[in-house]
Simulated scan of single mutants.
Amino acid sequence: MTGIRALTLVLDEPSSIASALRDALGWTIESDFGSFASLTAPGSIPLWINAPAPGEDTSRGIVIHLHCDDVDEAFQQAVQRGALTVREPIDMDFGERSACVRIAAAPGITIDFSRPLG
């Protein structure tokens, strides 16, 4: 068995969400077909966004953890680009520096910028 090829979120309006993630996080949109979009962050697997099938729920309560060399800088850039603050940068008791944001266009999804301490 191999590793994870991509992560898919089922969300309304994939094109709008892909654009919002690109704008707030600086990711690259690889493809956008309206009901499906694919984005990548440097050194990461693709994030695919699919529109829900009839009767299918959208993704909720998901945290996407991004490794960052400079959590504070990544957080500030995202907020300056329109991301909403969930948690400002802080050293967590389990040995990580972490900060979280949300993107208004992607309800139910939290982006966590983090790195190990030390």
Rank of each mutant, 00 (worst) to 15 (best):
G3F: 09
A6L: 07
L7H: 05
L7K: 04
T8R: 07
V10H: 00
L11V: 03
E13M: 05
E13C: 03
P14D: 02
S15T: 15
S15N: 01
I17H: 03
S19P: 00
A20W: 05
R22D: 02
R22G: 01
R22L: 09
D23T: 13
D23S: 10
G26Q: 07
G26D: 09
G26F: 09
I29W: 02
I29Y: 05
E30V: 13
S31H: 07
D32E: 08
D32M: 02
S35R: 13
S35M: 10
F36V: 11
S38G: 04
L39M: 03
A41H: 06
A41I: 08
P42H: 15
P42A: 15
G43A: 07
G43W: 00
S44R: 10
W48I: 04
N50D: 14
A51H: 04
P52G: 03
A53L: 14
G55N: 04
D57P: 09
D57E: 14
T58P: 00
S59H: 01
S59Y: 01
R60F: 05
I62C: 05
V63P: 00
L66F: 15
H67M: 08
H67R: 13
C68I: 04
D69T: 14
D69E: 13
D70F: 10
D70T: 06
V71S: 06
D72M: 03
D72L: 01
E73C: 06
A74V: 02
A74F: 11
F75G: 04
Q76A: 09
Q77I: 04
Q77S: 14
V79R: 08
R81C: 11
R81I: 07
R81H: 15
G82D: 02
G82L: 09
L84V: 14
L84E: 12
T85A: 09
R87Q: 11
E88Q: 13
E88I: 07
I90R: 12
M92P: 00
D93S: 15
G95N: 11
G95V: 01
G95T: 03
E96H: 10
R97G: 02
R97L: 07
R97E: 04
R97C: 03
C100R: 14
I103S: 00
A104G: 11
A105P: 04
A106G: 03
I109L: 11
I109R: 00
I109M: 00
I111P: 15
I111F: 08
D112S: 11
F113R: 10
R115L: 05
G118D: 15
G118K: 13
G118Y: 08
